[in-house]
Simulated scan of single mutants.
Amino acid sequence: MMQQSPRLLVIILNYRTAEMTLRAAEAALADMPQTHAELVIVDNDSGDGSAALLAQEIAARGWGAGNRVRLITSPRNGGFGAGNNIAMRAGMSDGAAPDFVHVVNSDAFLDRGCIGTLLDHLQNHPRAGLAGSHVRGEDDLPHATAFRFPSAAGELEAAARLGPLTRLLSSAVVAPPLPEEAAEVDWVAGASVMMRWDMLADVGLFDEAYFLYYEETDLCLRAARAGWDCWYVPQARCVHVGSVSTGMKEWRRMPRYWFDSRHRYFAKNHGRAYAALATCARLAGGGLHRLRCLLTGRQPEDAPGFYRDLAAHALTARRAAPADQDPSRSPATEDR
Rank of each mutant, 00 (worst) to 15 (best):
T279L: 15
Y307T: 10
G132Y: 01
R196Y: 00
L22F: 07
R308W: 14
R237V: 13
D99V: 03
G95Y: 09
R112F: 05
L110V: 09
D48M: 12
A18Q: 10
G247A: 07
P304N: 07
W63Q: 09
Q56C: 09
Y274M: 08
R272Q: 11
F306G: 08
L221C: 00
F306C: 08
G95D: 08
S5N: 13
A128L: 03
R329Y: 04
L205T: 02
L219H: 04
L205R: 01
R318E: 13
A146Y: 03
G66N: 08
G163K: 15
A332C: 13
D31Y: 06
S245L: 10
T316S: 13
A281V: 06
A25R: 05
P150S: 10
V244I: 14
V174P: 06
V244T: 13
A321N: 06
I58Y: 04
Q4P: 12
E157Q: 15
T166M: 11
A175V: 06
F100Q: 02
H270M: 15
C114K: 03
Q299C: 08
F211T: 07
F149T: 05
H270W: 15
D198H: 05
C230H: 01
E181T: 07
R136L: 04
A311D: 11
G95A: 08
A28D: 06
R225F: 00
A332G: 13
A90Y: 13
G49P: 11
G78C: 02
A128P: 01
A278M: 13
R298M: 12
H121R: 06
G286C: 12
H134G: 14
Y213P: 02
D99C: 01
R329G: 02
A82P: 05
C114Y: 02
S151N: 11
G285I: 11
L156C: 12
T333V: 14
G297Y: 09
G190A: 12
A323N: 10
A278G: 14
L178Q: 08
R89A: 05
L156Y: 12
W228Y: 00
V244E: 11
P176D: 04
M92E: 03
V239E: 06
P142K: 07
A276F: 11
L118W: 02
L119H: 04
T145V: 15
G132S: 04
H270T: 13
P164K: 08
M199G: 02
N85L: 00
I72A: 03
L221I: 00
C230V: 12
R68S: 03
E57D: 09
Y210C: 07
G271K: 12
R225W: 02
D324E: 15
H313M: 06
T217Y: 06
E19N: 14
V173M: 13
S170Q: 14
R282A: 15
